[in-house]
Design a binder for these strands. Sequence first.
DNA 1: CTGTTAGCGCCTTCAC
DNA 2: GTGAAGGCGCTAACAG
Lengths: 340, 340
Amino acid sequence: MSVTIREVARQAGVSVATVSRVLNSSGPVNDGTRARIERVAAELRYVPNGAARSLITSRTTTLGVILPDLHGEFFSEVIRGIDGAARQRGYHLLVSSSHSDRAELDAVLRSMNGRVDGLLVMSPHVDARVLQQVLPAKLPAVILGSTTGEVLAHWHVTMDNAGGARQITQHLIEMGHRQLVHLAGPEANADARERQQGFQAALQGAGLNPQVVPGDFTERGGAEAALRVFDSAELPTALVAANDSMAIGAILALRERGVRVPEDVAVTGFDDLPIGRYFTPALTTVHVSIDALGAQATAHLVTALTQVSAANGSAAAASFSTTETIPARLVVRMSCGATR
Amino acid sequence: MSVTIREVARQAGVSVATVSRVLNSSGPVNDGTRARIERVAAELRYVPNGAARSLITSRTTTLGVILPDLHGEFFSEVIRGIDGAARQRGYHLLVSSSHSDRAELDAVLRSMNGRVDGLLVMSPHVDARVLQQVLPAKLPAVILGSTTGEVLAHWHVTMDNAGGARQITQHLIEMGHRQLVHLAGPEANADARERQQGFQAALQGAGLNPQVVPGDFTERGGAEAALRVFDSAELPTALVAANDSMAIGAILALRERGVRVPEDVAVTGFDDLPIGRYFTPALTTVHVSIDALGAQATAHLVTALTQVSAANGSAAAASFSTTETIPARLVVRMSCGATR
DNA sequence: CTGTTAGCGCCTTCAC
DNA sequence: GTGAAGGCGCTAACAG
């Protein structure tokens, strides 16, 4: 196989222990022998075997990242946030995506055992109890985004879905809209449900009747939902989409039917994906720092990790259950007929 | 620590060897004992330790992915392609990004040793010789995208940068343009250089004088390059940007100066990012299946891997040096003033 | 300062 | 069909 520590030791005329010492700068080593070992190691292009090392140290400096998907700007942003925060702290990323059901999730988790120090899990469509059962008890984990039900014993970083939806809906109401329809995200998705609740709360708060059309967070789903609304008796004055992708799909579909946005109907999104700025009309939406979501979660996880290794052995496993919420901010652009 | 195979063996009243046999379905085991072992393993929620396993099998079923960045749609697409192809073949992804210089690259490679079976490397700004030196000789690797100079002894999946640039430039020439300026990508980037060469070749082929303004693949860079052109004596009739981001930056910047696209000047991109379709004016660009790039590279790598493990030990390490090129296709939309 | 000795958790001959 | 023993490459006490 590859060149091992033993080979370096042999050629340098020392024991493997000494080589290990200079490699990890643990323990004192004579300057002369250190130099000799470093030279031999370089000549042999020796690289320590990560698996062997983490087997004994039980540390991998790797974080497992579990996402439902890798498609689109949303996840791209999440990963970017995670990656930046992880790199900054010296951690690597073992990424796995597309886990719809429990069996898949379970398989991935199994394969990650022993290869990661902690887990970042985004799983908006898996029930919290299932998650709780499937997640290895010994592995610190941080949940990203909302889940169905409460996950205990884990950090949790979510975004203010309900608050954001409420804000954008109220803005429309203040602009004079009275007939608003929500193009909802997938029913099984917790984030989507919270957004819908925010929408409904805002309408009910204004004494209005909330209407909802089902959708699925995709552009196509947005288009279909919009057309369903369009085909019904009366066109509302505003469409509140559950995310930017749906909003864009809706606008495109309506445009083909000769409906103009925002002149004939206002349409808003959620997420503030980069594309929304370039789109015509520029999308009124809710901004949440998706990369911050990933970064925060990573920061928490690494903190937990270092605490665990500090409280090494002592069963001081502090209860990790804490939730942090990334704020949501209204971004008014053209698609709602803003005057500015 | 966690529950080990030994514990399962003890509680099932068998030896670890037998447990290992049922876990990997290697070797014959009595149906009764198999059932008992499976039951105990499930009860104990036993999960084999990946590090230990790959230490002995010297297989990780993990691919190392090294990218220069994770930002933006381009890399999002690359990863998606890789992820899909890898999952399909049962491989996981150890991702690492943002490696500008040799030292960083080296560090990452070291840390991946023993944790991955092969490497997918995209490193457009690192010289091929450096890459050659830094890449572990024992680790099969596939290079994504162009590099500066020839990398031998490795698979190589590139896209037809020069051909695509030539196509789009010729299209503009056929439309009657005579004054074209190229908004170039980063000098150190091999893909960018090839695109520039394609542009120049097309112009020279038509007996025209190629003009080039430096840039850096970013939107901001595109804006600055466009303004530099704008501020010079005469505005050309067409701007050929090195990628979509630069094209978009250029269009936005020009618009602020009151220059209309495509009426006053045609602007084209390269990559065919999703955003180009939604942008106004819709971007004329060159389509390359970026996800296919990732997927192909992954497919090749896995093939190489299985061959290596098949030719196990026998020094039949076939020369891997082969290059595949993902084709480029002209996509005519509005930003070049197309009549359709 | 340096070498020797144990394993980390698992798979794999080789006997029985 | 099953068990015992050895070792993957490395680190972490111990002795010297």
